[in-house]
Write a protein that binds this DNA or RNA. Structure first.
Lengths: 139, 139
DNA sequence: TTTTTCTATCTGATAGTAGCATATAGGGCA
DNA sequence: TGCCCTATATGCTACTATCAGATAGAAAAA
C-alpha cells in the first residue's frame, strides 16, 4: 500500500524524501497501473498548470484515451495526487464561469512523473520482448 | 462487457466469428488490461500445451511478472479463457503426482492472442509518444 | 423572465480485479 | 505417522473503473 496506489484513503506519507516510495509497494512490483490517468495528469501539469475540466480535454490528446476519460476519475485522481503532495491547487474565481481549482505540479510530482517514465520504458521493452517471443513462436 | 473482460460470469459468446469481439467492448476502448495474465497464458500455450501449475512457473519468464503471479488468478483466468472457448483442457492422470488439467490453445485463442499483439503494438507506441512528450517538455 | 445549455466540481452506486489466504487431495519419503 | 511437494480450486477483502447523478455559476436562447 502506498500513495501511488491509493493515497486517497490512507494519507500516511510516501517515504522520507523525493524519488522514494515506489520500492516496497506491491503496485510497483506487480505493474499495477491505474489506467495511466495519473502520469497523463502529471505530464499535462508539467507543461502548464490547469484545472480539472481543462485537463479532462487535454487527456484526450494522450493516446491512452481514444474516448474522453471519465470525469469522476479525473477529479478523484487529482484529489489523490494532492493528498500525496504531488500536485497543489488554489481556487480561481476571477474570470467568467464557475470557480476553477487550478492545479500545479510539485517537485515530488516531478519525481513521480520521472518514475513513471522509467516504468514506461520498462513496460515498453517488456512488450517488445513479448511481441518478439510471439513472432518467434508463430513463425 | 465481453468475454475478454470477464467471460467467467457472463458466457454470452463473443461475436459471430473469429477476430471479432474486441470492438464494441469498453475494455478495448479504455485499455483495460487485466494484468497481462491472459496474453501471457495464451502465448505460453501457443508454444506448447501445459497445465496450470507449470504455466505458473512459465509466467515468471515474462517480464510483466518480476515475482511469481498469483496462483488463484492463473487458475481463474484459465477457466475464464476456457469458458470463452479460447483454450480447451483435458485431465491427465497417467503419471506421478495429482491429476493435471492440460490446457491447449484453440483457433479462437490464437485470434485473441493476435489481437493482443496488436494491442501491445498500440500501447508500445502510445508509451513512446508519452516519453517523447515528456522529453520535449522537460528539456 | 424563464428555461436551457455550457462550464466546472464532486459524490454515489455497482461491477469487476488483484492479492492474499485457505481448502482439498494425491504421492513420495523419513 | 507426519511432513513436504505437486496440483487445482475457492473465499474474502481492498481497491479501481465506470456509469450516473448532484450541485452550482453564468451565458445564451426562448
Amino acid at each position: 500500500m502506498c500513495d501511488t496506489c491509493h493515497g486517497l484513503e490512507h494519507g500516511h506519507g510516501h517515504g522520507t524524501g523525493h524519488g522514494e516510495g515506489r520500492g516496497d509497494c506491491h503496485c510497483k512490483l506487480s505493474g499495477k497501473v491505474e489506467r495511466f490517468i495519473q502520469p497523463c495528469l502529471l505530464l499535462s501539469l508539467l507543461q502548464h498548470s490547469s484545472h480539472g475540466y481543462e485537463l479532462l480535454e487535454r487527456l484526450s490528446g494522450f493516446r491512452f484515451y481514444p474516448g474522453a476519460p471519465d470525469t469522476g476519475a479525473v477529479y478523484r485522481h487529482l484529489r489523490r495526487l494532492e493528498n500525496g503532495g504531488y500536485v497543489e491547487s488554489h481556487w480561481e474565481t476571477g474570470d467568467a464561469g464557475p470557480a476553477k481549482r487550478i492545479y500545479s505540479i510539485t517537485p515530488d510530482g516531478q519525481d513521480m512523473l520521472e518514475a513513471w517514465i522509467e516504468e514506461f520504458r520498462d513496460r515498453k521493452s517488456a512488450m517488445e520482448d513479448f511481441i518478439e517471443k510471439y513472432e518467434r513462436s508463430s513463425r
